[in-house]
């Protein structure tokens, strides 16, 4: 049912690498902003998958539409997350996530 034209695998591999890089950034970075950048990488890996599948597999515009919504949501999420990071900086004078740890247990 799925006919694969040459080229799809390249996109999928790039997307998988982007996903892993994003996950690595989230797990290893201590800086809040760097973690947010890792999240963007994962979102864009998904976007790349959607467009690649849409172009090579389904040959409809469905994937493109999804990506447009994703870009919008990523912007909203980044705005909210950065506002929260600013609030953190005001209280803790640091954006290093391990410093922000009053609550434990």
């Amino acid at each position: 049912m799925i006919t694969l034209a040459p080229g799809l695998y390249h996109y999928l591999i790039i997307a998988a690498i982007l996903f892993c890089l994003g996950l690595m950034a989230i797990l290893t970075r201590r800086n809040g902003i760097a973690i947010l950048m890792g999240i963007e990488l994962i979102l864009n890996a998904a976007n790349l998958n959607f467009v690649a599948f849409s172009y090579y597999v389904t040959r409809t515009l469905g994937g493109h539409v999804f990506v447009v919504f994703n870009i919008l949501l990523a912007a909203i999420e980044a705005a909210v997350a950065l506002a929260i990071v600013f609030a953190i900086y005001r209280h803790f004078h640091s954006v290093e996530v391990p410093d922000v740890n009053i609550m434990k247990g």
């Binding site: 989230i26 809040g32 973690i35 947010l36 890792g38 999240i39 994962i42 999420e77 909210v80 997350a81 929260i84 990071v85 609030a87 953190i88 005001r90 209280h91 803790f92 996530v97 922000v100 740890n101 009053i102 609550m103």
Partner: peptide
């Protein structure tokens, strides 16, 4: 402080 810390943890876990 606690509320802001809660928001940071929530936004990171949630968006990931």
């Amino acid at each position: 402080k606690l509320s802001t810390e809660a928001a940071l943890k929530f936004v990171i876990y949630g968006s990931v």
